[in-house]
Structures are given as C-alpha cells and as structure tokens.
C-alpha cells in the first residue's frame, strides 16, 4: 500500500506575519525559537551519536514535532504537570531541564535524569513536573489522568497535560480513561501528537475514524484539531483547554497534527511514506517560521540570532561532553530505587 498524505494542517499561520497582526510578543517568539532550536539540535546530535553506537537502546526522535511541546509549555503554567510516552526527549527540554542530564541518560550514566536506569524512553524531571517518559503505549493516558485526579482531589487549579502518539489512540486504556475523565471532570488535557504514523502504520489503515478529534464525541469530550506545525495555534488551543480544566469543566482532547521528519526510531527505513510528503511538512517548519517572524519584525539583530544559535550549539556540545565524562552506575545502584523501604531483603544468590 502506498502512503497517502497526512491530514493537512491549516496553513495560514506559517506564512510570514506582519507585526500588527502578531498575537504573541517578541519574548514568546524568541523563547519558542530558542527552545525549539535546542530540541532540534539535541535530537540531531542524539541521532548522530546513536548511529555512531555511542549508546544503545531505542531512540525515538522528536524532529519536526517541536511546535507541539513549545506551544504546550508556553500555553501552560509552571505548576502544571506533563507526561508523555517514549518519544520524550523534547518535553523536558521545553520545560527547562538541563540537556546535560538528558544526554547523560541516553548514555546510561549515573548523572542522567533517571540515574541511567530509564534510558531514552524514560526521562523524568520532578523539579519541572515532568512525570515521564513511559514505554508502554497508552499507559500514560490513564496515569496522566490520575495526576489530574490528584490535583482536583487536593483542590488546586493545576492541569495535567498528557501526550500520546496517534497510535496510542487505539489502546483500550484511552477509551476507559476518557470515560472516567469525563464522568469525574478531571483537569486533564489529552494531546495527540498526531504525526499520522503509528511506527509504520498510517492512521487510515487502522481506523474508520480518521479524524481523531471525533474520538472525543463518544464521551462528549470537547475536542478539536490543531495545526501542530504552528506554536501559535498549539499555544492557543492549550490555553483554551487549560482554562476549561481550571474552571472545573473537565478534560479536552486536542488532535494536534504534526509530523516527524525522521523515522519512528533509528532503525526505520520509512518505506510507508514518500519523500514529497516529508518535504511538504519541512516547508512548514516551525523553527524556520519563528526565525522568519523574528527577522521580519526585527525582534533580534543578526548578531543576537547568531548568539542564540551559538548558545544552542554550545549547550549540545557540552551535553555530549558531560555525558561522556560521567561515570556509569556502579553495581550497587541496581539495588537502589527499587523500594522506598530501607534495607529491602533482595534475594542475592552470589
């Protein structure tokens, strides 16, 4: 079966935008640009290092999807919570985690964000309310709703943002969770990072309901499709959904249509899609878009832009250096962080 093109994002916002019509201030565009560039460069480097066999495991890159995290972070509050699946490198970067500890985790070093115990698929950063990093497709949907449940229980107005790929939408966990999240009006925003492919299987091959925003209708959950190549569109949708959640009106489903330029993982030959399709999305690249807005509106000088680019490159280079100079966990660390109980009597035969 030949791959057909993905559902089209709305194309209006990726063209250059004149200053008078901009909905977001200079600071927002600069932050988006800086954060997304860091995500992109981190991931490009991670991909290179993986090919060089600097570290093992799986490696799922976020390249192309950066606007989803950028808009989610800018549209939420620092007291909110974030959880995702295994394509999890960009989320903590967007939330402000030091890329050094993320790179160290890829390398399996004890200085990693999960002490070298989680690897690529299990990044965590409690200081940024980043709750993983989960390897089982769809498991985070229920857990993320539980994070929101706890906030409602405690009487806060914080929101849990739960991300998933379009493939996870087919898991039973989603449907069970959506049902309860609506019954209990949980403060959760369900984000489908819809890149149109569950590994190599397109949305259209796995469902009769190709417009994923319609899934919300079964539970009367407000839902909408969002242009995931546009940080502005993502931010606005996130803010709207979060406002509903904070007011006690319950969850929202956002079908955020994005695209990953790279394969599902590093071993993906990508025979399920065309080069033209990839190029079509690369033409709407969110990082280029932000750079264009910054230039056209003279938000930054060329020198200042160069400084950002240099800083990003430096951060990535120092992350690799930090990881490579960090120690591997020692054998005794295998027995740590398994139980909170001190002195748990593990069975030790040797």
């Amino acid at each position: 079966m030949t791959a057909k093109s993905a559902p089209k994002p709305r194309k209006t916002t990726v063209k250059s935008t004149s200053k008078s019509t901009l909905k977001f201030p200079k600071e927002t565009y600069v932050k988006w640009y800086k954060d997304m560039l860091l995500m992109r460069k981190f991931e490009e480097k991670a991909g290179q290092l993986y090919i060089q066999q600097k570290f093992g495991g799986f490696c799922h890159l976020y390249i192309g999807q950066e606007a989803v995290v950028a808009g989610t972070v800018s549209g939420s509050r620092p007291t909110d919570f974030h959880m995702t699946a295994y394509r999890d490198h960009a989320h903590p970067i967007g939330l402000g985690t030091d890329p050094r500890v993320l790179m160290a985790e890829l390398y399996g070093r004890s200085t990693g964000c999960s002490k070298g115990k989680g690897g690529s698929m299990h990044f965590f950063d409690k200081s940024r309310n980043f709750m993983g990093g989960h390897g089982i497709v769809g498991a985070q949907i229920a857990m993320g709703a539980g994070v929101g449940f706890a906030e409602k229980y405690k009487g806060t107005d914080n929101v849990a943002f739960v991300s998933m790929g379009d493939g996870a939408v087919r898991q039973g966990a989603l449907h069970e969770t959506f049902n309860m999240a609506m019954v209990w009006k949980l403060p959760v925003v369900f984000i489908i990072e819809n890149n149109n492919y569950a590994m190599g299987t397109s949305v259209e091959r796995t469902t009769n309901v190709q417009d994923l925003s319609k899934i919300g209708a079964s539970y009367e959950m407000p839902a909408q499709s969002v242009n995931g190549m546009s940080p502005e569109a993502v931010h606005e949708a996130i803010e709207m959904a979060a406002t509903r959640a904070r007011k006690g009106e319950g969850p929202t489903l956002l079908d955020i249509r994005t695209y990953r330029y790279k394969g599902h993982s590093m071993s993906d030959p990508q025979k399920y899609r065309t080069k033209e399709e990839v190029a079509e999305y690369q033409a709407q690249d969110p990082i280029e878009h932000c750079l264009n807005v910054i230039k056209e509106n003279k938000f930054l000088s060329e020198k200042e832009i160069k400084e950002i680019q240099d800083w990003v490159n430096q951060e990535v280079a120092e992350s690799v250096e930090f990881a490579e100079n960090s120690p591997y966990p020692e054998a005794h660390e295998l027995y740590e962080d398994v139980y909170k109980t001190e002195g748990y009597p593990f069975i030790v035969e040797y």
Partner: peptide, 8 residues
C-alpha cells in the same frame, strides 16, 4: 521508582 531514578 526505579525508572525515574528515585524521583517518583
């Protein structure tokens, strides 16, 4: 607990 390096 283990996968989060003791954080959660």
């Amino acid at each position: 607990l283990q996968m989060s390096g003791g954080q959660y």
